[in-house]
Amino acid sequence: MPAPQDWAPYYGIEDAAKVYLRDPTMALDQLRGVVEFPSIQSFFMSRRVTEESWGEALSQEVVLTDGRRLIMWRADDDLSTSDGQQRQVLNASVRTILLSTITDHILTTEFEILNDGTRRLAEVRLRMYTQLITRSHEKSATDTDFFCESFRYDKSVDNGGLAQMERLLQFGRVLSRSI
């Protein structure tokens, strides 16, 4: 799989997708169906390659906000079995969540302290917790644990580099102002 260019220098989602995603046309078409691109306030992208028993698999993700919603496009290479036949497939989805359902939002920055005492951005972590219940566990007749949907995103020196860390930081700040 060829290495993508960095998306972070591009502030338009279309240009960023074309240089970073393997399937930019699909992503842009599916996103265009739920959001008008001029209304996008901030976005970031990620991708991850894994080795599966059947070969390399790519996961791609675009996360954006228009100030009212969190919109996530995700595509994953997978293996499907139908009629006894295995075939490689691409599962792509768009998910839309109202920002009003986000109950907690944590934007963490980690800085490395260099020998001369200066600080260098080393990692950015964004955590979002919603009130959307994904499962529950009844502990007793009167006590139940509820588990809510959460989203976790990380960028670091080794995972995206400085420009992508700064863009995730920007996204988290835009989200903070919108919640």
Rank of each mutant, 00 (worst) to 15 (best):
I40G: 01
M45L: 04
I133A: 07
G172R: 02
D158Q: 09
M72Q: 12
G12F: 08
Q86M: 09
L168C: 01
M128V: 06
I102F: 05
R48I: 05
A17Y: 15
R87L: 15
T134C: 05
W54H: 07
S93G: 04
G160W: 03
L28D: 13
I133M: 15
D83M: 03
A17V: 10
F146K: 09
A27I: 09
V89I: 15
F111G: 02
G33R: 15
T101M: 04
D154A: 15
R119Y: 09
T50E: 13
L169V: 13
E166M: 04
K139L: 13
G172K: 08
S93H: 05
E149K: 09
R127T: 11
E61S: 05
D78A: 07
I13H: 03
L169R: 09
D6G: 00
L126I: 01
S39F: 14
S100P: 13
E149P: 06
I13T: 01
H137D: 11
V63L: 10
E56C: 01
T50K: 14
A57E: 01
D83N: 15
L28A: 03
F43P: 02
R135C: 05
T108R: 05
R74Y: 05
E149F: 12
T134F: 12
R120Y: 03
E51C: 11
W73H: 09
Q164V: 00
S93V: 05
R177D: 12
L28Q: 04
Y129A: 13
M26Y: 03
H137I: 11
E61T: 15
S39L: 12
S53I: 09
I40K: 06
F37T: 08
P9T: 02
D143Y: 08
A16V: 08
R48P: 04
P24F: 04
D15Y: 10
D77I: 05
G12K: 15
D83W: 14
T25N: 11
I106M: 14
T134V: 15
R167Y: 06
W54M: 06
T65H: 03
G55T: 14
L121F: 01
R177F: 08
S46V: 06
P2T: 10
R120G: 03
M165I: 08
L90C: 15
E56M: 06
L126Y: 10
R135G: 00
T142W: 08
E52F: 11
R120E: 12
T96W: 03
Q5I: 00
Y153A: 00
R152D: 14
